[in-house]
Amino acid sequence: MRLPRVKFEHRPHRYEDGTIRIGGEIYGIAAEIADPYGWAWTALTLMDGTRSLDEIIERLRLAHPELPDPESIVEQLAATRYVEDAAAVPPAGLSERERDRYSRNHAFFRTVDIVPRGHGWETQLRLKSARVVVLGLGGTGCHAAWALAAVGVGTIHCVDPDLVELSNLNRQVLYGEGDVGRPKAEAAVARLRTVNSDISVTGERRHIGSRRELDELIAGYDALALCADRPTGHDIRVWANRACAAAGIPWAGGGYNGPLVTVGCFAPGAGACYECLSSGEEARRHPGTPVDLGGPGVIATSAGVSGQLVAHALLGLLTGVPVPPVGTIQGVNLIAADHHVWVRHPPRPGCPVCGTRADGSEHNSMHRMTEIDAGRANRTRP
């Protein structure tokens, strides 16, 4: 690192007792440093992007001659995610137009990233090279596809068999009155291309009626956004679970049941698969409890939250930023602020997707693993 600089989003604050808080007030991002002698505070103050590491170390030594090892403090602080290199050059893989378009993305990702990076654009570059299938362009799918396009996913393929109906317009954000009677895939592609002309958006009017057809659909893609509910919601999720495992790609699926909105997040080799979570929930319920997978009750807000949660999960699955909660189903109840959904179960022994063999070793039927750097990185705290 040539010119260390504390990121603007993580600018530090020093309390009267000498404790330094860095990283703002966002839970899971901030850290506190016990600094009774002011050594760390001086070092952080010097990290303003105008001095090299050697210059900071020398000034720290002059300010605190009693400090036995100024090099260690400076190097530890510079190696955290709270500090960036002011001399870093923007990547060649993004044009000036793209850097302007995604400048707010850049600020968000470098705030929540738990891994120190070179220039802070690494997450955006990963999104630019990503290829995602959005299956289902209803309430959830429209919002998910819009978010993925807006954030800069490089290739998006939209699939849906239906035509736009007037009743869709209360929550399916990609269509207008003039699109009624038009294939959803066609209308969605046209709209998304106006949202972001710097990415590739394609689509097809197609009904996925078997696991084999889903295998064919996702071949060559990096992730699946499952926003379809036909055939029955559980069946198509089982297909997605097995197809994505076989292809070695992650997937996220979401939906709504009245005000209850949920999203599942799954990745090869990490956490339980959908079928294991479903089995765990079935075992937890009282025998005979009916399972309601949703109905026609939906408004723009519940559909919007659903789609945005799916898109947010996919960002983490594709880049590791933020770290995705793989092997879980989570959600919110829009009419009960204290009702949160958090489902996590261990893989079932012998599960062909994510379980363990009789000898206790992990089963892994995937031939290609999705790399998630942040999932393997240790949290570095000064």
Score class of each variant (00 low, 15 high):
Arg59Leu: 14
Ala243Leu: 01
Thr319Leu: 09
Ala228Gln: 03
Thr232Glu: 15
Gly307Ala: 12
Arg206Gly: 05
Arg242Phe: 04
Leu226Gly: 08
Pro250Gly: 10
Arg379Gly: 13
Ser200Pro: 00
Ala63Asn: 03
Pro65Cys: 02
Val173Met: 08
Cys265Ile: 06
Met1Gln: 13
Val341Pro: 00
Leu135His: 06
Gly120Thr: 03
Glu55Ile: 05
Val353Gly: 02
Ala40Thr: 11
Ser306Asn: 06
Val323Ile: 10
Asp179Leu: 11
Val173Arg: 08
Val321His: 01
Ser361Tyr: 02
Ala246Val: 12
Ala79Cys: 05
Pro12Tyr: 02
Ala358Arg: 14
Asp162Arg: 08
Asp198Asn: 09
Pro268Glu: 14
Val238Asp: 09
Arg21Gly: 07
Pro70Phe: 00
Ala337Met: 12
Ser200Ile: 13
Glu71Ala: 13
Thr319Ile: 09
Arg205Leu: 01
Gly220Thr: 05
Glu204His: 09
Met366Gly: 12
Glu84Trp: 05
Gly24Pro: 10
Cys142Phe: 06
Ala31Asn: 07
Asp48Phe: 09
Ala86Thr: 02
Ser129Thr: 13
Pro116Asn: 10
Thr50Gly: 13
Cys354Ala: 13
Gly118Pro: 00
Gly258Ser: 12
Thr194Arg: 15
Glu16Gln: 15
Gly120Trp: 04
Gly297Trp: 08
Asp100Arg: 14
Cys351Glu: 10
Ile335Phe: 14
Lys7Glu: 05
Gly38Pro: 00
Met1Glu: 04
Ala240Gln: 01
Val332Asp: 05
Gly38Arg: 02
Leu163Glu: 14
Leu67Met: 04
Glu75Gln: 14
Leu62Lys: 14
His363Asn: 14
Val323Arg: 15
Ala40Asp: 06
Gly253Trp: 05
Glu362His: 06
Arg285His: 04
Ala63Trp: 02
Thr155His: 15
Pro116Leu: 07
Arg126Asn: 11
His106Ile: 08
Gly269Ala: 13
Ser278Val: 01
Thr328Lys: 06
Tyr37Trp: 07
Ala223Phe: 03
Gly23His: 03
Gly154Cys: 03
